[in-house]
Amino acid sequence: MIEINKKINRIEVKLTAHFMGDDLCIVLTGGDTPHLGAITASSQILEPQTITFENHKENFITKMSAEILRKNFSGNFVICCGIHLDDIKKSEITEVMDLCRQMIIELCNRLKDF
């Protein structure tokens, strides 16, 4: 398992990546109320497929993450994401996206060691 934590101001996000043989299950969660808002599954062959639960926007994070992973990881993967911040501001949405992008890139770099 790989675990990465990042924080900026009141935003705290946690990434855990669990190996399933040569495949990977990634969970991105945080904020005030961790939950499951969207799931994206993909591989080198399979175009990303996303499920977004009602009234959630985490699909933007899972799709962005899948694009990065498809370029850097050869196995199948799924990304589960749920990050909620009470009274989130537009600037904080950008910060959440940036944190998640940084974490996925760091994950890809760490995967090179496996």
Rank of each mutant, 00 (worst) to 15 (best):
L36H: 05
P34V: 04
S43W: 00
I93S: 01
G31E: 05
N55L: 12
G82N: 03
I83T: 01
C25G: 14
L111Y: 04
L107F: 00
I93G: 03
K57E: 12
D32A: 03
C81Q: 10
F77K: 15
I79P: 01
T33M: 08
K90E: 08
K63W: 05
K90P: 05
V13T: 08
Q49I: 15
G30V: 09
R70C: 03
E3K: 14
K89F: 08
V78F: 07
G37H: 05
T62P: 14
K89T: 00
G21K: 15
K112Y: 09
F19I: 04
C81D: 07
G30N: 13
H56K: 13
S91N: 02
S65D: 03
L28S: 07
I88G: 00
G31C: 01
N59R: 09
G21A: 04
I4H: 07
T94D: 13
D113C: 13
F60Q: 11
V78Y: 06
H35N: 06
N76K: 10
L107D: 12
I2D: 07
T16Q: 02
S43C: 12
S74C: 14
M1R: 04
A66L: 02
E47N: 06
K63N: 15
R110I: 11
T62E: 08
I2T: 06
L99W: 01
S74H: 15
T29K: 14
Q49H: 14
R10I: 02
N76C: 14
T29E: 07
D22Y: 12
L107P: 05
D32R: 00
K63D: 12
I11M: 14
E12I: 05
N55M: 09
R101N: 10
I83A: 02
H84K: 11
C25V: 14
I83E: 09
I51D: 08
G21P: 05
F77A: 09
L69P: 04
S91W: 01
T94W: 05
E3G: 03
I51T: 11
F114Q: 15
F77T: 09
D22N: 11
L36V: 07
H18D: 14
K112C: 08
I61Y: 05
A41Q: 15
N109V: 07
T40E: 14
G21T: 01
N9H: 13
L107Q: 04
S91R: 06
E95V: 02
S65C: 11
R10Q: 10
K63Y: 03
L36F: 03
N9R: 06
L111H: 00
K7T: 14
C25E: 15
I39H: 04
D98L: 13
K71R: 08
R101F: 08
F19H: 13
R10L: 06
I83F: 03
D86A: 02
E47T: 04
M97D: 15
N55H: 10
Q102W: 09
G21S: 05
E67A: 11
I2E: 05
L85C: 00
F53H: 01
E12Q: 09
L15R: 01
L46M: 14
I88R: 00
R10C: 01
I93D: 10
F60C: 11
